[in-house]
Nucleic acid binder design. Structure first.
Lengths: 167, 167
DNA sequence: ATGACTATCTATAAGCT
DNA sequence: TAGCTTATAGATAGTCA
């Protein structure tokens, strides 16, 4: 009875898996509701059951609004100043910027322009980092990152063991 | 001490709200990870912090794939209060997101795909970094990177803890 | 599937450092 | 700013109806 510790892997028994899905889906949506209410943030949650049934939740705004916000973030950018998809675009944008600088007589305006652009790029950098860290999480990745991560994990395992011994 | 019952409304104290967001975000992502693993289902979770920072999670498949699956559903099945109005835009953008990875090479398996994606994102990151440093050599990129690394480590710590509990 | 029950496990608000 | 601890509220696996 009660709740034994559950191994974090797919529940093989079909019935048990479906019951768990039903319960945990409710719990997950409740948690999503709570964080969006308590912390006043946008949340969109999409869950497909194994049979393909869709369950969604969003707080504050509708799901599609949050998705649009998400989709717009990494690639599209409203406003004429930037549209960076790859190096070539970036270089072109950079060249345009420099031209604008050279053509402009008013230094202050150029600085404002650059400041704004830098700010936008920083936002994208942050998004990229999140995106990268997401893919780094559970997926096979290139060997350099793998090595770095393995070292990190080994170090922590060592520390946890040490701590465990201390207890 | 302990945990008094919390009113289900926006936490007015800013610091407390941010702390709650940070904690609950981790908890929510963990729950999403658990249901996707235990029940073997597609989950996509998108959270925007109040400052606009994006956090995402998805199990099994990538966020874009789950979103595409969602957007591509017949309107009837998208749920009661949901209707994608700019479906074409969303699909096109999601396809672009995917094509960016597929374009470069003939990618056949998911491992290659992910490796390619990571490498591409890293490429962009590096370009962005250079771009930023070109305009602004003293940007606090290091502290941002530190933050990212800390997040990564925190994530691994709870996994190691979980693993420790299993032993 | 859906709904209690209940024993445990988990999440987390405050407090503390 | 940030962790770490602690005590309690909340989530849930197994079970039965």
């Amino acid at each position: 009875m009660g709740k034994p510790k559950l191994a974090m892997k797919k529940i093989e028994n079909k019935d048990a898996r479906h019951v768990a899905f039903s319960k945990r889906r409710q719990g997950l949506i409740k948690k999503a509701y709570e964080i969006s209410t308590l912390c006043d943030v946008d949340v969109a949650l999409i869950v497909f059951s194994s049979s393909g049934t869709l369950y969604t939740f969003s707080g504050r705004n509708r799901v599609e609004d949050v998705l649009t916000r998400f989709v717009d973030l990494p690639v599209k950018e409203q406003g004429p100043s930037i549209a960076i998809h790859n190096k070539q675009d970036l270089l072109a944008t950079l060249a345009n910027l420099k031209n604008e600088e050279l053509q402009a007589n008013n230094i202050t305006n150029s600085e404002e322009l650059i400041t704004e652009e830098v700010s936008k790029c920083q936002d994208r950098l942050e998004t990229m980092r999140r995106y990268l860290s997401f893919f780094n999480k559970d997926q096979p990745i290139n060997s350099h990152l793998l090595d770095e991560r393995r070292n990190c994990i080994n170090e922590m395992i060592w520390r946890v063991r040490e701590r465990k011994v201390n207890l």
